[in-house]
Simulated scan of single mutants.
Amino acid sequence: MENHPTYKDLAPICQKYPRAAGCFFQAYNDILFSQQWEDVQIIDVEATKRGVITGRKPNTEKSLTVVPCALAESLSTSWLRSIFDNLAPSPEEIYLAITSEDSSIVYYKISKGIVKPPI
């Protein structure tokens, strides 16, 4: 990981939160290279002990927020709430980038509050 070209941008977050470094590195590179998002930025969210990724999908104007986490992690609703509470401005939705050891990533959309599904 340390030899990858993107590591110099990710090093401050990876070194500060080593338990989340692998999933953060994997999600960041997927968003940047595979999905080719634009305006990709890293935000340090100390309350969640990890970095968060923001950016825009190609040819869109809406900024999205991605929270990398590992498949083996236990998540709670209070932890998810702290993500919304510690981002300014607080997004209406976030995407959990759940990574596994085989390098696969699944993105889950988490909305703030109770949201009625579209019909």
Rank of each mutant, 00 (worst) to 15 (best):
S74A: 10
K109S: 11
R56A: 02
R56G: 00
D30T: 09
A11N: 02
A88V: 15
P118M: 10
M1S: 08
D9L: 04
E92Q: 07
N3Q: 14
I43G: 00
N3K: 09
W79H: 11
T6F: 14
I110W: 11
P91E: 11
S78M: 09
L71I: 13
P68S: 00
E38Q: 14
D9G: 01
E93F: 11
Y107F: 13
Y95W: 12
Y107C: 05
I105F: 02
K16D: 03
E101R: 06
S100K: 12
A21W: 14
S104F: 06
A11P: 00
Y17D: 14
R19P: 02
S82I: 07
T54P: 02
I110F: 06
P68R: 02
V106Q: 03
Q35L: 11
H4L: 05
L87P: 08
P91N: 08
S111R: 11
P58R: 06
P91H: 05
K16T: 08
T77I: 14
Y108R: 13
L71Y: 15
Y28E: 06
S100A: 13
I31S: 00
T54S: 07
F33M: 12
E73R: 15
L96Q: 00
Q15K: 10
S78F: 12
D85R: 02
T48H: 08
N29T: 15
L80F: 09
F33V: 05
L10C: 08
M1D: 06
D30W: 00
K109I: 14
I43F: 00
V52E: 04
L32W: 07
I43C: 03
V45N: 03
F84I: 05
V40S: 06
S82N: 09
T65V: 15
L64M: 04
V115E: 07
E93A: 14
S104I: 13
K116C: 15
Q26I: 14
F33N: 15
A21I: 13
S76N: 10
N86Y: 02
A21R: 13
A20H: 15
R56D: 01
D85A: 04
A97T: 13
D30I: 11
P117H: 00
V52C: 00
V40Y: 07
I94V: 11
P5R: 05
R56I: 01
P118W: 08
Q36S: 11
E101Y: 08
R19Y: 12
Y17P: 03
V45I: 04
T65S: 09
K16M: 05
A27D: 11
Q41K: 14
L10D: 07
A97Y: 03
Y7S: 04
H4P: 08
S34W: 03
Y7C: 06
D44T: 00
N86R: 01
N86M: 03
P18Q: 15
E101I: 15
Y7W: 12
I119W: 10
E2N: 10
